[in-house]
Each structure stands twice: as C-alpha cells, then as structure tokens.
Design a protein around this nucleic acid. Sequence first.
DNA 1: CTATTTTAGCGTCAACGAGACACGCATTGT
DNA 2: ACAATGCGTGTCTCGTTGACGCTAAAATAG
Lengths: 236, 236
Amino acid sequence: MSSGQSQTPSAEAQAHHYDPSKYERPSVTVDVVMMSIRQSDLQVLLVKRRSWPYEGMWAIPGGFVHIDESLEDAAKRELREETGVQDVYLEQLYTFGDPGRDPRMRVITVVYYALLDSERLQVRAADDASDVGWFSMYNLPELAFDHAEILAYTLQRIRGKLEYTTIAFNLLPEQFTLRELQRVYEIILHRKLDKRNFRKKILSTGILEDTGAKKMEGTHRPARLYRFNPAAVARQ
Amino acid sequence: MSSGQSQTPSAEAQAHHYDPSKYERPSVTVDVVMMSIRQSDLQVLLVKRRSWPYEGMWAIPGGFVHIDESLEDAAKRELREETGVQDVYLEQLYTFGDPGRDPRMRVITVVYYALLDSERLQVRAADDASDVGWFSMYNLPELAFDHAEILAYTLQRIRGKLEYTTIAFNLLPEQFTLRELQRVYEIILHRKLDKRNFRKKILSTGILEDTGAKKMEGTHRPARLYRFNPAAVARQ
DNA sequence: CTATTTTAGCGTCAACGAGACACGCATTGT
DNA sequence: ACAATGCGTGTCTCGTTGACGCTAAAATAG
C-alpha cells in the first residue's frame, strides 16, 4: 500500500487557502451491486478479473468516477455498460476506503446497489463475454478485494429496507401477481411467509392496484395481476 | 450524459486493467457532523469559514483524507482535533460528490456523524476560537456548500435509528435517569412522549441496568440512576 | 366428461404491542 | 407542617401480527 504516486498538480491552481494539490490523492471509484431475481433466486452480476490482482476471481463491476460526473451518474453509467438497462432503482450503499483494500494503490469506492426487473433484463441476458455472470447471493464464488464484505452488507441492507419501503417492486415487471411479490420477499428474506398474512398485509397498505387482468400459468386457477400504485407514500 | 473528457480511452478497459494515473482525480474529504445534547437541545458543532468560498459562513468541520489513513480514522482525527474527545459513537452517513458542490474543485466528501456525551464534552467546552460554535439543529445559521442538505439528512437518519438501535445512550453519561433518556428521545424526535409508555417500553427491553444509586436534583423526589447494559443485542 | 392436480383466494382467533390516561410518593424550601 | 416539584406506577382499548384449513378455478390425463 501507499506506493509512490505520480501526483497531478493539475487544473486547480485556484485553490485559495488550503491547497489540495499538496496532498496525495486517493482514487475514487464507484462499484455497483446489480441484483435481480432470476431462477427463483436473488442473483448478482459479477465480472471476472483478467489481471493482477485477484486475477481470475470475480468482482463487483465498477470503475473510476469521471471528474465532471456525479457519483450517481457514474453508477448509472456502469449499470448501462454492464446490462444496457436504464431507469432502474439505484441507491448508494456505503463507501469503503480502507488503505490496502486494493494492493495497487489507495482506492476509495462508493458502492451503489441496483435492483433490476428481471423481465426487462432478458433483453440483454445473453451477454457475450463469458467473464460476466450472474451468481446467487447465497452461493457466491470467491471474490476479489473486499467484495465479499460488500455483498454481505448489501444483503443486510436490502433486507432491512424491504420491510419499510417499496423496493421489492423494482424487482418485478410492471404487472405481477401477489404470489410473485411474495416470492420476492421470501427470496430476499430467505424464509417462507404465510400466504394469507402476506396478502392481508400488502393489500391493507393500499399500494397495490388491481389491473383487472389475470395471469394464467400452469394447470390451475389464474391469478389476478396487480400493479404498484406509487400514490401510497410510504417513507422512503 | 456526454462526458466531454479528455482522458479515457474506452471507459470499459479501466474496469479490468485500470491505470489510474491517467485520470484526473477528485479530492476526497471527510466531514464530521458532531452532535450533542446541550441546553435541552440537539446541537451541532460548526466552524466559521475564513476564506473564499462561503467566507464567513458556517460549515461542518472536515478535512482531507490522508493517503494512508482509513476513512473512519480520518473522521476520528477530525473529531479529536475539534473536540478533544475520543471513543465516541461514530458512523458513516453518506457520501456527497456532486461536481460543483465545491466551486474550487471536484471534492467528494464522505460524511460521518458522531454522537457526543455532553458531560465528557464539558472539558473542552471553552473552545478558544470564536470561529467554532454549537448550533441548534433546529435553528441553523446559513451554511456553506451543501451542508444544509447534509444536516437535514443527518437528522432524518438519527431519527430513524433512534427507534431500532441504542444510539441514544451515546448522548448521555454513563449513568442517567429515565427522564433524562426520555428527554434525549423527545429532543431528537421533536415531540413529547408519554412518560409511562416510554418507561414501560424501555424497561421491557432489558437494556437498562439499575445502578442502585439515585440522582437528587431540585426540590423533589430523587430519580433512580440507570446504566446501559450492552448485553442486550438489539440489531445494529 | 370425469377425476385429478395444482395454485389462487379467503376469515378467525389469540397474543402482543402501542397509546391514552391520573394519582400517590419522596424530597426540598419556607 | 405544608407547599411545590418532578418521580414512579397500572389498566384498558385498539390495532397488528401470526397461526391455521378449506373451497375455487383452471389444465391435463385417462
């Protein structure tokens, strides 16, 4: 760690009192934990590293923050580059910056997570490169850097938010059945929920709107299709 | 999006074999929102700016992250420099990094907040400089940069955490009465609480330990002194 | 066309937690 | 002793949560 960096005393000569060019600057990246429900599982998109360090291991996709780009824009850019999708739920998770977390240099990474509607994702599902893949959050490969810690924290966070926000809807297409919604909850919380209590609770909040349509699938009674009604203002 | 940047050949290559020395790097600071209960009020420590930009306005104390220092260590250092206290509750709040939030240059700031025991604080209460001061979170002066936004977010966050964590104890000395604890809750939530319900709720959790001692103050019946019992493992 | 299979959809009861609410108790000062 | 002050306590109601089993509607197989 703390290798001798080539410092750029570049653009900002205008700094008045404190002069930041005196300081050796860390690099700043954004990493984006992109998750989706796939194969009845909570999965995350990872990329395989091609070079040192951690060559051959899997990592959370990320990259440098451009100098004129907001952190969120950088995260959106990563998201677009990896999945092609836009307008997804994206939220800042935490910033990891221990010296030594990257053996090459000091890197501070601002981590975002994204929840992807599995349906819209199909479009680009066939990613060309074999060095990009979806993995179960419950059965991860060996991960580069401190990425295992980051994913553990991500899971903890979305579990917490599941209960008092509407983030679950971001993992479903516009229309969905109550059972599908329940499955999202079950997969993230990693435990079975009672069907009747779940329906009662969700419906009582009024955040669902009956579309009138039904979804027929398999050899059984068809299910009503609902849609999320954002008019209900749960706390963020 | 359109980043008209000079740098970056293929924004993607960086993810794998990145050569950071090619990129213009943002500066990284930590800001620390130090809060304490003073004069029956939730107050925050601010410093007055002496120079451009926002000269004369108040700001959250902060500074550059040293190249070999973790973010949390940097926050602790700030805390120590401003208040002289150590071993306080410190938690990362959020990272703010919009380009343009600092007119001098691109600054990404990782914000921490600290909750200070008002008693231990007395020690250094008489801060020499008149350009450091405590302000009510409910009656803030005009603030530099995006610091008003940061404080608003801080308040929102500690209110949320108050309900399912034990952060309130960090604002009190080791021993305290139930009434004092209730006042901390009332001040942060900014509303009156029912005394009996509050006592019932807190005591039922078992996180308080009766010290046996009593606190006599004023012309009335003395109050029992309690101490926080960390053996109760509420979720973080 | 009948039977079987499969999931959708629904109601009750018990336990618990949250919130509203009023008065005697222990101390100090006069 | 008595006035003033804040400490300390219990009950009831109401809404929420969780446990629990049966009928309904469709498809398929025979």
